[in-house]
Amino acid sequence: MAFLDGVADAASRQFPAFLSGLGITIELLAVSTAVGLALAVPIALARLSTNPLLSVPATAYAYLFRGTPLLVQIFIIYYGLPQFDVVRTSAVWPLLRDPLPCALIAFSLNMAAYTGEVVRGGILAVPAGEREAASAVGMNRALALRRVILPRAFRIALPALSNEVVLQLKATSLASTVTLIDLTGVGRRLAAKTYTAEGLYVAGAVYIVLTFAIARGFRLLEARLDGARTR
């Protein structure tokens, strides 16, 4: 079939380009997920805090980043910030000059806002009996949090977290709008050169494989955690 031949041809001829695009996509996903998750726990705890000095800024942050499109955030960080001379003469300019750090900042902050909500939900869903049991055996709040509440909350939130990671994978495609040549960028460049959508089909197929791998990885993690509990 001519169509399939075209797609196969696009994939094989542009293999090095797709490979480097895949590398950038994975880097964007891995770094933003790691940073996002690391920030998610303090954000969730701050949102749950009874101290307004913690809960108000954390809630404002979550609303700001979940209330604006990711594309707008990337554009503001990449194109918007350098419009101020202060930014261009500051120490962070060498970092912000490159599109990769700009995209990583946007994706990480976005991921933190969304997963912060997921972790918060997980913490709230920890059964009251388990909290009480923790304090009954004499654990103080910090210890109970570390040994009982957070591990349980993490397991409860895991399916929702896997969803966030899959969504994040697709969100990284917006990096192509700030001159990063990720998977989507390679597909688009190819499509622009050949006037067909073949490059985009190849990119789409790779995203499906990645999504499958992520879902499978989380399934294994869930099974492992459940095994540890029932052992």
Binding site: Y79, P82, Q83, R97, T177, T179, I181
Partner: peptide
């Protein structure tokens, strides 16, 4: 080459010194 979706964005980045 640094490739942009629109020429407006290309001008913006020349202005920004990228």
């Amino acid at each position: 080459p640094k490739v942009y979706q629109s020429q407006d964005e290309a001008f913006l980045d020349v202005e920004n010194g990228r």
